[in-house]
Amino acid sequence: MGNWEGLNEFVAVAETGSFTDAARKLGISTAQVSRQVKALESRLSTRLFYRTTRRVSLTEVGQVYYQHCRQLLEGLADAERAVTDLQQAPRGRLRLTAPVTYGETTLAPLVHDFALRYPELQVEMALTNQKLDLVAEGFDLAVRLGKLDDSSMMARRLASRTLYVCASPDYLSTYGEPRSLAELARHNCLLGTLDYWRFREQGRAKNIRISGSIRCNSGRALVDAALKGMGIVQLPDYYVDEALQSGRLVSLLEPYREQDDGIWGIYPHNRHLSPKVRMLLDYLGTHLGK
C-alpha cells in the first residue's frame, strides 16, 4: 500500500474520536488501529492526535491532514464505484423527456434500440415541448435543443442541429430567390412561434423580423406549407433534411446561416451518475453524432 498505509485507520479515529470505536467501525482490533496510526505518525514525523485517558482529538497538523485524507478516500471510493458500474447492465426504470417531433422522429427509435439491448430496463418517455422540472417530476434525463438556460442542471452535448431557410422550387420560380436578408421583407415567410429568424452576418448573430400569411406552432405543418409553395420557412435539419435531399425544397441564404445549435442531454446535478443514464448518454452521443 505504500503511502496509503494507515490512512483508513487515521480517518476512522479522527471521525469517531476513539481508537476503540474506529476498530469497531473497521472490523479490526484496537491494537491494529493503534499500531497503524503510530506508524503513520512516525512516517510523517509529526503527532496527529492528542491522546488522554478520556478522549482523542486531532492536533492542528492532524486536522489539515485529515481534510486531505478524507478527499483522497472519497475519490478512491468514487473510482471503485465507477469501475463497478462499468460492469453493470442498465436495469430498473429510466424516465426521460424530449420535444415532440424530435422525440418521435429521431430520439425514440434510438432509445428503443438501446432498450432492446438491456431487457431489464423499463423506459418511460414523455414527449412534450414544455420544459419540465426534472427533479420535481422525477425525470432522470431530458433531451433539449438549442441554447441552454438552466444552469442548475448538468449538460452534455450529444450532437448539433442546423437551421435551414428553404422554399419549394415552385415558390422560387414564381417569386424569385432572396439573395440578402433585406430581401426577406418582400417574401411570404411561414411563421412558427417566433416573429423573427436567426442568422449570422459579418460574424455576428442577427435576428430578422419576418411576416407572412401562415403561422403555426408545428414544424411539420410549416414543412407541408413550404412544400406546397406557400412561402419560405426556417426550420431545423430534422424537419427538412429529406425534402432538401430529394430537391422538393431548396436551401436559401446559406452565407447567412446561423451557427449550429446543440442537442443536449440534461440531468440533475449528481456527483455520481447512474450507469443507466451514463450508458444511454454514451449511446445517444455515438448515434446522434453520425
Rank of each mutant, 00 (worst) to 15 (best):
L158Y: 08
S160V: 13
L191E: 03
T46C: 15
L141V: 13
L96H: 05
G289F: 13
V11A: 09
V83G: 00
H112Q: 15
G92V: 05
L58K: 05
E80Y: 09
P90H: 02
L86M: 12
T30A: 04
D150L: 14
G262K: 10
A205D: 14
V233Q: 02
A221R: 13
G6Q: 04
T30Y: 01
V143A: 06
E254I: 10
K206H: 12
C216S: 14
V111S: 04
V100F: 02
L76C: 06
Y256L: 07
A79W: 08
D133I: 11
D85I: 02
V56M: 04
C189D: 00
L253H: 03
G92C: 06
N217C: 03
A77C: 00
G92Q: 05
L73N: 07
P268N: 13
L194K: 11
N270D: 13
T16Q: 06
V64Y: 10
L76E: 14
C69D: 03
G27P: 00
R81N: 09
V111A: 07
Y118H: 13
G289M: 15
Q234L: 08
S151Y: 09
K25R: 09
G146I: 08
I210M: 09
L58I: 12
L281T: 10
A142S: 15
S34V: 01
Y65T: 12
Y102V: 06
R156W: 12
T30W: 01
C166T: 01
R117V: 02
F199N: 03
L235T: 02
E80I: 12
R91S: 08
L134F: 10
G229N: 06
G62F: 04
A155K: 15
A98S: 15
G262S: 15
S180N: 11
G138H: 10
Y196E: 11
I210H: 04
R55V: 07
A126V: 15
L48F: 06
S45C: 07
E201M: 13
A205M: 09
F139L: 11
V135S: 15
L7T: 06
L48E: 02
T46G: 02
Y164C: 04
K131W: 07
